[in-house]
């Protein structure tokens, strides 16, 4: 069993959908991924009950990514450790949008939605440089993740919703890059990432953790 699967898939929804995606390895799905959100109205016309299992799995993959992003910015805003106007503005503006993406995906998925994992951002929500670097990485990754899934989505309505989140993730990436003093668009083309690539990157951060416990003697770290 993968490290955080039991916490991640607390209601078994992901276990149920993974069979619908033979092209992806079991491990890929278990590791979860980044996600984006979309306007409520976009999803309203097509409830998850009408979506294919593959589409549901993709939306849940997106939902985990959106959970990751929204928890990151929300925690940064609440902890009030960031001092520069740039960092505070980033947390506030991007946080509100990512929370909207989460809400939209949760509504679209209904009871099929995976639960929010536990996060440990390892100090990146309290350190200016680490916060900006992580934000840039999250947004670039989010855009690449949606881009890698768009052509696999069967439902036209869900494709429309995902594609309309995809470009917002790219906007975020460019915006935070500009504020951080780095180039907003480094190439004429953005490349997609597969679920496996995204999941490896997310796993490498160690940001998604098991349910916090005090059984060990160590004090549990903050989890968004």
């Amino acid at each position: 069993m993968d490290t955080y699967f039991e916490q991640f898939d607390r209601d078994g929804a992901l276990r149920e959908t993974e069979a619908a995606l033979p092209a992806e390895t079991r491990r890929d799905l278990l590791l979860g991924a980044l996600a984006g959100g979309t306007a409520l109205a976009l999803f309203a016309s097509e409830p998850a009950s009408a979506a294919t299992k593959g589409d549901v799995a993709i939306l849940n993959y997106a939902l985990v990514l959106e959970y990751l992003q929204s928890s990151f910015y929300t925690e940064a805003e609440r902890r009030k450790a960031l001092r520069t106007a740039t960092a505070k503005q980033t947390a506030r503006v991007l946080g509100s949008v990512e929370r909207a993406h989460v809400a939209a995906l949760e509504q679209a998925l209904g009871s099929a939605a995976v639960k929010r994992p536990f996060f440990d951002f390892r100090g990146t929500t309290e350190n200016e440089d680490a916060f900006i670097r992580t934000g840039v990485a999250f947004e670039d990754l989010g855009a690449a993740a949606y881009k890698g899934q768009a052509h696999r989505i069967q439902s036209k309505a869900l494709l429309q919703a995902a594609i309309s989140i995809h470009s917002v993730e790219a906007r975020h990436a460019a915006w935070i890059r500009y504020l951080a003093g780095t180039t907003p668009a480094s190439s004429a083309f953005d490349e997609p990432k597969t679920m496996a690539q995204v999941n490896r990157l997310v796993a490498s951060t160690g940001f998604i953790v098991r349910r916090p416990t005090t059984r060990s003697r160590r004090r549990p770290r903050f989890t968004g």
């Binding site: 594609i163 990436a173 460019a174 668009a185 083309f189 953005d190 490349e191």
Partner: peptide, 12 residues
């Protein structure tokens, strides 16, 4: 999709 996100970056 490889193009539109770059246009989105330009917009932002």
């Amino acid at each position: 999709a490889r193009i539109v996100s770059v246009d989105a970056r330009h917009a932002a």
